[in-house]
Design a protein around this nucleic acid. Structure first.
Lengths: 181, 181
DNA sequence: CAGGTCATGTAAAGCGTTACATGATTTT
DNA sequence: AAAATCATGTAACGCTTTACATGACCTG
């Protein structure tokens, strides 16, 4: 019966993070914010309740382990948890990436606002992408210490974002020329 | 007081779609499914209630316009709606693209499952991306009839997805070689 | 001793999908 | 006459964010 294997979305991150040795809700949130947040975010409002749910489901076990006086709940994978994690990593389903990009939405509707607005929108996308690229580049400093999986996701994110930045620059130019003539 | 300008996320698509001349919930859903769904999805469960909310907010007006016996509610922008749409298109905020990609999440954790699983995950990402690329390519047939904004988003999606497909192919090879040695 | 970080949580609200339900019209 | 498409909607559920709340510990 242990295999009503319906991991919730956030459950998957958490199980993985505990698998990597992140043992507290706080630690998990830290790593999420410094890595997966670019393709998979999670907030405290989900992490803490989900940790308890996973424990109830028998995939995690916890013990209180105070640091000094400060209370701390330390989690680790149970055998069932390890199995569930491996099963998920090996499974074939749901490999779709869902995207919500307001810049693209604006661009889609940009004919309603005139050509200069269109250029402006591309410019705004560019700015946002450059900020993102800067954040990703900053992470690269520690690429040497990363597990290969993490390094691959960083590479992918960096490369894809770079492509997007280039596209925006090219498109900005193209739209300006069309105007200028 | 008409400017408590808090358009909800779905409200933005809908307002834009009505602006483009999509006048019924059904029509809006059609276009969403054939275009913006790649970066901004919407379901009936949201569209119909949101249309009514936007009307209540004074941004849309509706009239019943039966086709034959079949009931049909036709919406159009009010002046306030047109203003809200323009204001949104001109606004500078919120240009972040949120992404949820389970492939990347698996890749991130892939060290927990061994190198052949890692390769397998990249292979699965590749398959999913190729499917997406095929869908986008199919849309390209009608690129000639598109407004320029729509064409730009298609170009962008096509280009980005192509980059991602290439990355997966390269990475698959790289991982295989590393193994093979 | 102030400000930052460690650490844990809850409540409410909002967002969104899925599944269900209905029925007319058009096309094959 | 069946199948596809047009057309509209609701209910339940699940997911996620935001804002609030608390307090100890550490560093300068």
């Amino acid at each position: 019966m242990a295999a009503d294997n319906a991991l919730t979305p956030t459950g998957r991150v958490i199980l993985g993070m505990v698998g990597l040795g992140k043992t507290t809700g706080y630690d998990i949130k830290q790593l999420v914010d410094h890595s997966t947040r670019f393709f998979w975010a999670a907030s405290y409002g989900q992490i803490y309740p989900e940790l308890r749910r996973l424990e109830q489901a028998g995939l995690l076990s916890s013990r209180g382990e105070p640091t000094g006086d400060r209370l701390r709940t330390v989690y680790e994978l149970t055998d069932a948890g390890r199995r569930a994690l491996e099963e998920w990593l090996g499974s074939d389903v749901n490999l779709v990436g869902e995207l919500r990009d307001e810049g693209m939405l604006k661009l889609f509707f940009s004919d309603l606002a005139g050509p200069e607005r269109q250029r402006q929108i591309v410019g705004q996308m560019l700015e946002a992408l450059e900020r993102k690229l800067a954040q990703l580049s900053a992470l690269q400093a520690k690429a040497g210490e990363m597990r290969s999986g993490q390094r691959l996701t960083l590479e992918y994110g960096l490369g894809a974002t770079t492509w997007m930045v280039d596209w925006c620059r090219k498109t900005e130019r193209r739209l300006s020329e069309r105007e200028g003539r």
